[in-house]
Design a protein around this nucleic acid. Structure first.
Length: 420
DNA sequence: TCTGGGGTCCTAGGACCC
DNA sequence: TCTGGGGTCCTAGGACCC
């Protein structure tokens, strides 16, 4: 069986773990730049605030004292996530961390009778040790585990654990699951299915396989099988990432190429850092810049350009230099850019590069790699203390709004002392 | 006035080859 | 005037996830 562990309202729960006054109150956490709502407490869901609501639409509730708001604090969330995952790893034969707030535990080999008490105990322990409430859904496949998790969250009677382990429970659960809530269907696919009379997950699995294949292709057939207890979603892949992206919206728009150069340099430098941290190198560097798509009154422009490197690299000099070339290819003056990003792809293991290159002078590359290494050793604070001439001083994410940010409760002694 | 960021996989169509 | 058929690989864009 799979046990899907999902942290309840994760970002909000992280804020609450260190700010008990938020308990029981409507709380939302905002995206970067304080843009829109990305996490809601049950109380704020009850207020009818949809996911993704721009902040300015709920500001009146905050001003009236009816809603608490926090800027997102990913350092804090990442740290608490690691703590939760380490507790899961202690009991799961195999753990697959799926996202910052979710993990699949492969429970194959554990006595089925033990599953519920084990998971119930885990929920209590995680709450006590980290402050984070979690729910667990148990079933034969990951997609059914998602369904079970839904019920564990929704109905108090389950005390956080729901199991789907018989055909009867399966049919009951599927009949109560709207088709749009199924993992892998998505909000675009749901209306089409509903129009064809498929309103619930049970309606869906009762369609013939060919019907599903014709409408939704191979991915639809996978979901169709998974919902019936046949495993189709692959076991964990421990592979390295295939692409890495660093992008941000700006607090204000930018038209000037020199200013964009500073920002794109920082994003590219961050990508290079991430590559080195994973022990990989990228063969392609891409850059995009976007105008503000919500401003219908302004002219829009979404250029992107990518450049293939002669030899994959993770050196800041290479990645930043190439990103700036790509930026100049796409940039046109006269537009108000609101967002920019760097994507590195065609990623390979850094160790595989050395042997494969002929006729390429590796001596300058080796020198660059040594420079990058020193930069990493010095820049442990996340600040660009050591940087290339095109990068800005300070932190790469400086200049974005974080008006309601909580303290770094878990990661900085200075901050912790300040709280005390 | 104000609207996030980072990933993966699949597919259709073009380029290219014989 | 008449102009094949079949395969692979790559890429861009769409859909989905959290």
């Amino acid at each position: 069986m799979y046990a899907l562990v999902d942290c309840n309202n994760f970002f909000v729960s992280c804020e609450r773990a260190f700010q008990p006054s938020l308990e029981g109150r409507p709380v939302v956490v905002l995206s970067n730049n304080d843009g829109c709502v990305v996490a809601r407490s049950n109380e704020s869901k009850a207020l009818g605030i949809p996911m993704g609501t721009p902040y300015f639409k709920v500001k009146h509730l905050v001003d009236a004292g009816k809603l608490e708001v926090r800027s997102s604090n990913y350092t804090l969330y990442g740290d608490l996530s690691a703590r939760v995952m380490s507790l899961l790893a202690e009991v799961a034969p195999k753990l697959e961390v799926y996202s910052i707030d979710e993990a699949f535990m492969n429970m194959d080999g554990i006595d089925p009778g033990e599953l519920i008490p084990l998971c119930a105990g885990l929920i209590v322990k995680i709450r006590r040790w980290t402050g984070i409430p979690v729910s667990i859904g148990i079933a034969e496949t990951k997609t059914l585990g998602k369904v079970a998790n839904h019920f564990a969250k929704k109905y108090k009677g389950y005390h956080g654990v729901c199991v789907i382990d018989t055909p009867g429970k399966m049919e009951k659960a599927l009949s109560l699951t709207p088709i749009g809530d199924v993992w892998g269907i998505g909000w675009r696919g749901a209306p089409k299915l509903e129009a064809a009379g498929v309103k619930t997950a049970l309606d869906f699995v009762r369609q013939p396989e060919e019907w599903v294949r014709n409408r939704m292709g191979i991915t639809g057939v996978r979901t169709w099988n998974e919902l019936q207890g046949r495993r189709m979603v692959e076991e964990e892949k421990i592979e390295k990432r295939k692409s890495i992206c660093t992008s941000r919206s700006f607090a204000e728009t930018i038209s000037d190429l020199d200013e964009l150069t500073l920002r794109v340099s920082d994003f590219a430098g961050k990508c290079a850092e991430k590559l080195r941290k994973e022990g990989t190198a990228a063969g392609t560097v891409g850059v995009f810049i976007h105008t503000n798509r919500f401003r219908k009154d302004l002219s829009q422009y979404f250029p992107e350009a990518s450049i293939r490197l002669e030899v994959p690299s993770s050196s800041s000099r290479d990645i930043i230099g190439t990103a700036l070339q790509a930026l100049r290819m796409g940039y046109r003056p006269g537009y108000e850019y609101k967002r920019a990003g760097v994507i590195v792809s065609d990623i390979v293991d850094a160790s595989s590069i050395q042997q494969t290159i002929f006729g390429f002078d590796l001596s300058s590359r080796e020198r660059d790699d040594r420079i990058s290494k020193v930069m990493d050793q010095v820049n442990t604070s996340g600040k660009n203390v050591l940087r290339l001439g095109t990068q800005r001083p300070g932190h790469y994410a400086d200049g974005i709004r974080r008006e309601f940010c909580s303290k770094l409760f878990t990661t900085s002694w200075a901050e912790l002392l300040e709280v005390r």
